[in-house]
């Protein structure tokens, strides 16, 4: 069996390169995202691990905003990344990996919401969580910092009081900057319904936060 190389020459394999002095392992270059995605698509779990490291915080935050429950958000994020690993061979780079992941996490969070709505009284469940959040990191101005934390705390409480379907549409539009069409597609509803929900969510949040105006 003769080697069939398209170009270049190969030195005899029984003539390996001279050994080099062993030293500490060289630090690996950080790889570009498209390279990691290609490698992960080939089945390279280490490349996928780097992608998870890069995006886990942002994706968990997406899940948390929709589900308003840390355990549910972790569960949805975990399932979403695993679904991404399975679907990567079909991912052709038509979108950024982060955009593609965002949609998967959102869909898993929405599925989780639907399951929760079937099983328990979700409004009672999430209202317990409104106050259980990390405060915003200090920006240096104590007054502004305190006001921002208070605003966020009130928003979270107001969001927790919204029905899930309104909260999801509002979060997608206002926090994640989705277009109305994207909100409709991600939430699995028609465009008019999505717009109506965003409008009602805004109206109810304004009422709940009237003391700030």
């Amino acid at each position: 069996m003769n080697p069939d190389y398209r170009s270049g020459s190969i030195h005899p394999v029984n003539d390996p390169p001279a050994p080099t002095e062993a030293g500490p392992p060289r630090p690996r270059r950080p790889l570009r995202e498209d390279v990691l995605v290609t490698r992960a698509r080939d089945g390279d779990a280490r490349a996928f691990e780097q992608l998870v490291r890069r995006h886990q915080r942002a994706m968990y935050a997406v899940g948390l905003r929709i589900l308003a429950d840390p355990d549910d958000a972790e569960d949805a994020t975990q399932k979403a990344f695993f679904a991404a690993w399975r679907r990567l061979p079909q991912f052709r780079g038509q979108a950024q990996f982060s955009t593609w992941m965002y949609r998967i996490v959102t869909n898993h969070a929405l599925n989780q919401l639907r399951r929760r709505q079937r099983n328990i009284d979700s409004s009672a469940d999430i209202s317990d969580l409104a106050a259980d959040r990390q405060p915003v990191a200090s920006t240096g101005d104590p007054y502004q910092h305190s006001e921002t934390n208070a605003l966020l705390s009130d928003l979270r409480a107001a969001l927790a009081g919204l029905p899930d379907e309104l909260r999801v549409c509002w979060v997608l539009r206002e926090v994640d900057n989705c277009s109305y069409q994207e909100v409709a597609e991600i939430a699995g509803i028609n465009l008019d319904t999505a717009r109506g929900r965003i409008y009602r969510a805004r109206h109810r949040l304004a009422e709940a936060m009237a003391s700030w105006r």
Binding site: A45, E49, V52, R53, Q56, R57, Y60, A61, L64, R65, P70, E74, T77, Q78, F81, F82, R133, Q134, V136, A137, T148, L151, L152, D154, L155, R156, A158, W170, E174, V175, D176, R202, L205, A206, M209, W212, R213
Partner: peptide, 25 residues
Amino acid sequence: LAHRAAGELANAPVKAPATLLPAIM
């Protein structure tokens, strides 16, 4: 107002649970 708060919410620091990455991998 809610829009301003949404901006703060988007930028609010969220830390992924330490158990997330090991569970995925």
